[in-house]
Design a protein around this nucleic acid. Structure first.
Length: 279
DNA sequence: CGATTTTGACCGGCGC
DNA sequence: GCGCCGGTCAAAATCG
């Protein structure tokens, strides 16, 4: 795209404006996370890598309230809902009668689905964790629906959808090509339900204060212009192969976050090794 | 046997 | 218009 028009992303206010044109201005990360139903306390919300909405037209902005139960959300979700028009044959049932009524046989569901997809971009945020495990257990259950090799990355990107049939939240998981130990997780959308337990292991939710620390959560610098730029490029469909300087991490591998407070530093400093996987 | 993962095919957006 | 690329679908394979 037009990189020449990109503002100087080394400037804090510049990228803030770019990332969060009108939604996340002056909001702290706890606000942002709560919009994603991640009701973390301030001490747990450091270093949200990015959070932004990307909509092609203003009316497509997905409300911050949850899914189909919200009348306000229903307007936008009607447009998005085609994503779940075709529940897998193995899936229990179609859930929303309004969906079925609009997805009659006359219109190719596939095309309608695609159109809806491209129109709506839900809120997204991304963060990096240092973990051997690609798929972080965040309290929700995810079903993988795709994997793609990404250009300029030696690691594939995995695509997951929330297994809750009413929930349209997706996430992408990929490893940093520069540091394979870093997992970049991008969430899109908001859960409309509670977290669930895991059948094969312990229950850990994003509400758990150990969630981030358990995965060597790597808060980014605020800003880390290069990473944000990359996210923006991803969002805008632009590939960037330009070399980026190493992230401005501290000696112990952490990154200075402007909003961090002493208690947060304590949390981050107290790195807990991989302990979440219960065989 | 149901749920989940894998994987090739397909589609749309975008730059040239 | 063409080709590249990211994202999704869906059938087959695998898992528990």
């Amino acid at each position: 795209m037009n990189n020449s028009e990109n503002p100087d992303l080394t400037n804090d206010s510049a990228w803030r404006e770019l990332i969060s044109p009108d939604f996340y201005d002056d909001r702290d990360t706890s606000d942002i996370l709560s919009d994603f139903n991640w009701n973390l306390h301030a001490t747990e919300t450091v270093g949200v890598l990015s959070s932004f909405t990307s909509t092609s037209t203003p009316h497509e902005l997905i409300p911050t309230s949850s899914c189909s139960s919200s009348a306000a959300a229903s307007v936008a979700l009607t447009e998005v809902s085609t994503m779940s028009h075709n529940p897998p044959a193995t899936s229990s049932s179609s859930e929303d009668p309004t969906e079925n009524s609009t997805a009659s046989a006359a219109i190719t569901p596939k095309k309608e689905k695609k159109q809806a997809q491209k129109r709506i971009r839900q809120q997204r945020f991304a963060f990096m964790t240092k973990s051997d495990v690609d798929n972080l257990e965040d309290g929700y259950r995810w079903r993988k629906y795709g994997q793609k090799a990404v250009k300029n990355s030696s690691f594939p990107r995995s695509y997951y959808r929330c297994t809750n049939s009413r929930c349209t939240v997706k996430k992408r998981v990929e490893r940093s090509s520069e540091d394979p130990s870093i997992v970049i997780t991008t969430y899109e959308g908001q859960h409309c339900h509670q977290t669930v337990g895991f059948p094969r292991g312990g229950i850990l939710t994003a509400h758990d204060p150990h969630f981030f620390t358990s995965h060597h959560y790597l808060p980014p610098p605020l800003p880390n212009p290069y990473y944000y730029q990359e996210l923006l490029h991803q969002r805008d469909g632009v590939n960037t192969s330009s070399p980026r300087p190493p992230q401005s991490t501290t000696e112990d591998g952490h990154v200075a976050v402007s909003s961090i407070n002493p208690s947060e530093e304590g949390l981050l400093g107290d790195i807990v090794p991989q302990t979440m996987r219960n065989p």
